[in-house]
């Protein structure tokens, strides 16, 4: 099911963009208000709820025993799953994850995996038989746009909140986190680039590009979405925007 936006609103948003303005009065490089709350879920090893404006995402991290993959017998396992809950939007339906949920989970997965945020090599227990598996479950509670950034930030916050399992097999002093990647999504509306699209902006945008950067400004994951396109200049501008905003978002992980 699609979000439906009236043509009056569509034209209004496109027109505002031409005049460097947005629906809610923000500037192009301004996020909505962000809040990060950690440790709300006692039954999870780590958890966090992120709000970006009215968008709400809850992430729970569970750490359990698992069999390693045959090609990495001594490394831990990372799994990311996303649920677009029917309570979060009239356009979300119950059932198996659709392509949007799968894309969301896989983009967040790449952001965390490729930056080597978790030192998976330290999460072996018995080579070839038993390792620690880190399950990151993304629960979208309220969808008002920009789920990618909210989910990536919530996943990172939940990882930083992890208390290791109280078991003999856990021998590390703490949960091994080495990086803090942050995802910033840039939307293109009427040829203009803006960060953190709200739902209405997202629904009229031509395309989006999500860019994950680590502390040193290097890129660890990217994903273009939507049926529009980016020129080369726009891409480079989006990268500069994402890089600048990432530092600001990272402040919320403290």
């Amino acid at each position: 099911m699609y979000e439906i936006v009236s043509s009056v609103k569509r034209n209004y948003i496109a027109d505002l963009a031409l005049h460097e303005k947005r629906l809610d009065g923000r500037t192009f490089d301004q996020f909505r208000e962000i809040s990060v709350e950690k440790g709300l879920i006692k039954s999870a090893n780590g958890s966090a709820r992120v709000k970006i404006g009215k968008t709400q995402v809850l992430v729970g991290v569970k750490i359990e025993h698992a069999e390693p993959f045959p090609d990495t017998p001594e490394s831990g396992v990372l799994m990311v799953n996303a649920e677009l809950l029917p309570l979060a939007s009239p356009t979300f339906e119950p059932g198996r994850p659709d392509e949007n949920a799968i894309e969301l989970a896989r983009v967040v997965d790449r952001c965390i995996r490729e930056s080597e945020t978790i030192d998976l090599e330290k999460l072996g227990i018995k080579p070839g038989e038993d390792v620690w598996a880190v399950f990151i479950d993304i629960y979208v509670l309220d969808h008002d746009g920009n789920l990618i950034d909210a989910s990536a930030l919530a996943a990172m916050a939940a990882l930083l909140n992890v208390k290791p399992p109280e078991e003999e097999a856990w021998t590390l002093p703490e949960f091994p986190i080495q990086k803090r990647p942050v995802m910033v999504t840039v939307s293109k509306i009427n040829g203009k680039l803006m960060v953190d699209p709200c739902l209405d902006e997202e629904s009229v945008a031509d395309a989006r590009i999500s860019i994950a950067t680590t502390e040193d400004g290097s890129i660890c994951a990217m994903q273009k979405g939507g049926t529009g396109y980016f020129s080369r200049e726009e891409l480079e501008k989006a990268y500069e925007l994402a890089r600048a905003k990432a530092d600001e978002l990272r402040q919320h992980l403290r």
Partner: peptide
């Protein structure tokens, strides 16, 4: 455009 891994600007 998709990317995973590590790139500087």
């Amino acid at each position: 455009l998709q990317m995973d891994g590590h790139f500087t600007g």
